[in-house]
């Protein structure tokens, strides 16, 4: 029989575990340009992403700094950390191209029941950028508006479903 010697080795990849053990970029950013808050405490996962945006030499918006605060499982913390690594230094346009599959790939895979944690990370980024656009009064691209609406809708559904759970 195969010997199991590392924690969770039947559930999580070594990359997930390494990221979980030493996550990057956690904490708050004071005076963040945008904050994305997703998830629901009732389901057990809440992710907040803070971004600091600055212009690069070409005048494009760049994610200069990014930090997360996450309440959640091993997968949630690892995906939070990975998304900060994936988009830090990128222009906003590039950052918005990151998908849940990119997140999962960067972690060497995730168990199926934990895919939603990677969706959460991508959603948090979308919401942070949306927040930044709102705050700076920029015109919101149609695509972003659409994604934001979907995220908000599913959030409302979950909140409706669990309303009264804590009463």
């Amino acid at each position: 029989m195969k010997k199991i010697n590392n924690t969770c080795s039947t559930l999580y990849t070594p990359k997930v575990m390494a990221t979980f053990k030493n996550p990057h970029n956690y904490g708050k950013i004071k005076n963040a340009s945008g904050i994305g808050k997703v998830g629901n405490i009732v389901c057990g996962d809440v992710m907040w992403l803070y971004i600091k945006v600055a212009k690069n030499k070409k005048g494009q918006d760049v994610i200069k700094d990014i930090k997360f605060e996450t309440f959640g499982c091993v997968a949630a913390i690892s995906t939070s950390s990975i998304i900060t690594d994936l988009v830090k230094g990128k222009t906003i346009n590039e950052a918005l191209k990151v998908t849940k599959d990119n997140v999962i790939e960067s972690l060497g895979g995730l168990p199926k029941i934990k895919y939603h944690c990677s969706v959460l990370a991508v959603d948090a980024l979308i919401e942070a950028v949306y927040d930044y656009f709102l705050k700076t009064g920029q015109k919101i691209p149609a695509d972003l508006e659409k994604k934001h609406k979907i995220i908000k809708k599913s959030k409302d559904i979950i909140e409706e479903r669990y309303k009264g759970w804590d009463k």
Binding site: C8, K21, G44, C73, A76
Partner: peptide
Amino acid sequence: PSIEGESLIIHLDL
């Protein structure tokens, strides 16, 4: 109150 159990038990396991 402010932390999640799976993360906690996996850290303990480490």
